[in-house]
Simulated assay, not measured.
Amino acid sequence: MNTPPPEPPRANRGRSAAAENRRALIAAARVIFCDGGYGAPLSSVAKMAGVGQGSLYRHFPDRLSLAVAVFEENIGDLEAIAESGDGTLDRLLDAIVAQALVSTAMIDMIQAAPDDPRVLNLERRVEVLVSRIVQREREAGRLGDHVEVADVVLSISMIAGAVARTPTDRRTGVARRARALVRAAFVREQN
C-alpha cells in the first residue's frame, strides 16, 4: 500500500498570516482532540497546523481557549440547523450525535471548566438554539407540551456523554438507542 509522502510543514509568515494560522490551528485541534481527547498534547496541534508553539499560544493562551474555538464552530453548525426553516429536533440531535461520535473533547472541556465564562457562553448558545427548535416542534405538533427546553438540553448532554464514554466500536449503537429513548419521551401525547 503506497501512502503519499507527508506534506512539508507550512512556513510561518508571521503576523501577515495570523488569520490563516488561526484557522489552521483550529482545524488541527479538531483532528487532534478527536483522536486524543481534550488532554491531547498542544504541541501536536501546532505541528499539524505547521506553526510554532509560540504562534499557537499567541492565538490561544490556554487549552480551553483553543477548545472553545473548535466548539464554537460546532455550535455554529447547530445554530444553522435551528435557523433553517426545516430545522427539527431530529436534525439537531443527529448533528449532536455526529459531533459526539468523533470527539469526546467537548464533554471533557465542560467537565474541566464548568464555570468558565467561555464555557457558560457556549451553553447559553445551545439553550437559545434549542429554544427555537422546541418552539417550532411544538407549533408543528411533533413535541409534547410536557417537554421543556431544559429537558432537551439535558437530553443532549446525556446523549453526548453516553456516546463519548462508550468504546468507539459501540458508539453508533448507543447513539441509536439513546435517540430512540429521547424520541419516545418527547413525543406528543395522544388524547
Rank of each mutant, 00 (worst) to 15 (best):
D151F: 03
G37E: 00
H59Y: 02
Q111E: 15
A11L: 14
G36V: 03
I110L: 10
E148Q: 11
A140F: 04
R91C: 12
V153K: 06
R125P: 09
V174Y: 01
L120H: 11
A105E: 01
I96L: 14
D169Y: 08
I32F: 01
G76Y: 08
M158R: 14
G39P: 00
M48R: 15
Y38C: 01
T104L: 13
V70G: 10
V163L: 06
R30V: 11
S157E: 12
V147R: 02
L101V: 08
L89G: 03
I156H: 12
L181A: 14
Q135D: 12
E83K: 14
G36L: 05
D35T: 07
P117G: 05
R136C: 08
G39C: 02
A112M: 08
T172M: 14
A160D: 12
Q190E: 15
I75H: 10
A18N: 09
L56V: 05
E79V: 11
E73Y: 07
N191Q: 15
V149L: 07
L89N: 06
L25E: 01
A49W: 06
A184M: 13
A27Q: 12
P9N: 09
E139M: 12
S157M: 08
P61S: 07
T3L: 14
A184W: 12
L93R: 09
V51K: 00
M109R: 02
I133Q: 04
M158W: 15
G76Q: 03
R136G: 10
S65I: 09
A98W: 05
A24N: 02
P6Y: 00
I96N: 07
Q99W: 02
R142M: 06
R165G: 02
V31F: 05
I32T: 03
V134W: 09
V130C: 03
A185W: 12
I156N: 13
V51D: 12
G37R: 05
H146Y: 10
